[in-house]
Design a protein around this nucleic acid. Structure first.
Lengths: 333, 333
DNA sequence: ATGAAAGCGCTAACAT
DNA sequence: ATGTTAGCGCTTTCAT
């Protein structure tokens, strides 16, 4: 059986509380006893029982990340991974563990169990799981919570970390304008999401500043084929765009295929920098964001709340960056 | 303050042990008391304190997945995600939570703390973190452990779940042979990994069965450019291959580019079915594997061990499947 | 079928 | 600077 704090105490000839004090670096202990206790611990291969500790403290030093099962593929790939790594890294740095728990918006049961069962001290929700009712409930028990992405409903008061999509839109448009493109079209799957709206806003702002015509917005481009077909139609219209801003990499790939080989090659830019744009030929310019940092900041904020930080909400927007590639070097015309 | 088991007991007019029995469905309780206890629980919004429970039981009902930080990008993308989802799903089904903890081979500290601190009941290691010394240590304390991937060293005794790479190699080669390809080349980054060796073995077996010439094996194709260059050199040689089996999707993309447009279009097949091959043009045939199921099986096996299953090792190999795409339809010649 | 009591390993308030 | 004591919320013998 593993050694307990009392075994250590006995061997060192002190009381359990003294050992506890050494463990937690609380109060003052004489150098001598500290030595003896250290030796005893070593001798017994003592490791404090984390469960007992959490139980006594009423805190598990554990946070959770809820995952929207329904949204599994949207939250896919590198984006998600890096965010999780970021969260784990920050948690680890502060001595917290990370529990992953899947939920759906309708059945947040597992996350709730963790909270009610005191198994976690705080939770990170993707925005898709952060329903108003749920947030209010957490608020009421003042249970620490941070949202990944930001709730559209402005009256929802919560800490969150998100990508600055408005800025991403601006930077993207500015990059295109600098490269000589004048007639921009936004190609997306659907326009309902906040991030789409934000991007459109940002693009619009950049166009206005540059005194250029308004953005054209086209939805319904779910996969490369549809995107290609849409782009081709647009290019064949009487006022063809000279650049496409694409909601994601699959759309960008489709647009790229519509564009290549024409006399006037239009520019293509994506908002979602995956391998798909990186390894496309020609490679496609994308807006990159440090998703590791996104996760890290979310966790850091959460832990600050857990450790008692009160006061106004923290709502962080992460900047994006243009990764310029061949698809937006004006190649002809 | 949250209600405790004693609050419930008092309200129901019974003792705490009776409530505990109801909670754990142990022993026999009269229908009447059961009713009263249920009502009391509801009235008080009672949720058992998971920490206290774990503490009393000496089991946290939690498993961990160690992540190799050094290998973060190798474990990237969909593969990793799906495996994690699979693990979480199986864990959840059995009432376990999942902790993610990052480690390096040199510093397995965090995972070890979880184990020694009794915060977890079992752990899943990627093969890169499952060093012989570490495994022996777990073995000695008979701490439940499952490995993702299989250790090359056959004398390491441990439960593992892996992809059947030998079979993948065979199926891949058979698919190519069926489509009329005769002169196969394996294009990889490095050949050191076991999975490469296994694939080569499988391919070789299929070739032998079909009475075809031996497999040519070429390494050093790290990214699309290098792969393309290598493939071009090979195609220009006096005995050009008519099909490439590629270690991953980036290599396949490069090979595809070397191949397209030639009079004799060689076939291209990848062992790593990501978006890259799916959306390539032409789309590239790949070996797909159900990574969700991989994770799920790993977790299920682990939990069986936790719950006391003894006996011989479980070593599971998951089958792969050919996802036939345009790149292996003989197009000319 | 139910209750009383002890204890899981640790922490913390109070003594000294 | 250190020891004593009580208790965190639950489970589990052992009685009855």
């Amino acid at each position: 059986m593993a050694a307990t704090i009392r075994d250590v105490a006995k061997l060192a000839g002190v009381s359990a509380s003294t050992v506890s004090r050494v463990l937690n670096q609380k109060g003052v202990i004489s150098a001598d006893t500290e030595q003896r206790i250290a030796k005893a611990m070593e001798q017994l291969h003592y490791v404090p029982n984390a469960m007992a500790r959490s139980f006594a403290n009423g805190s598990a030093r554990t946070i959770a990340l809820a995952i929207d099962v329904a949204d599994a593929h949207a939250y896919s790939n590198a984006f998600f991974n890096n965010t999780v790594f970021g969260i784990e890294t920050a948690a680890h740095e502060q001595g917290y563990n990370l529990i992953i728990t899947s939920s759906t918006e309708d059945a947040p049961a597992s996350a709730d169990e963790l909270i009610a069962g005191k198994k976690i001290d705080g939770i990170i929700y993707p925005v898709s799981l952060a329903g108003a009712a749920q947030l209010r409930r957490l608020e009421r028990q003042s249970f620490p919570c941070v949202i990944l992405g930001h709730p559209g409903d402005a009256c929802i008061a919560a800490d969150w970390v998100d990508i600055n999509n408005t800025q991403a839109g601006m930077l993207a448009a500015q990059h295109l304008i600098e490269n000589g493109y004048r007639n921009l079209t936004f190609l997306a799957n659907s326009l309902g999401e906040i991030f789409s709206q934000d991007r459109i806003t940002g693009i619009g702002r950049a166009l206005q500043e540059a005194g250029l015509p308004e953005l054209r917005v086209v939805s319904g481009a779910g996969d490369p084929e549809k995107a290609k077909a849409l782009a081709e139609t647009l290019l064949a219209s009487e006022d063809p765009p000279d650049a496409f801003l694409c909601g994601d990499d699959r759309i960008a790939l489709g647009a790229m295929r519509a564009v290549t080989g024409r006399a006037e090659e239009a520019g293509v830019l994506s908002f979602d920098d995956t391998q798909l744009t990186q390894y496309a030929e020609p490679a496609i310019t994308s807006m990159a964001v440090d998703t590791f940092s996104l996760g890290k900041q979310a966790a850091q904020m959460l832990i600050r709340r857990i450790e008692g930080e009160r006061g106004s909400l923290h709502q962080t927007l992460l900047s994006t960056q243009v990764i310029a590639r061949a698809s937006t070097h004006r190649r002809k015309g």
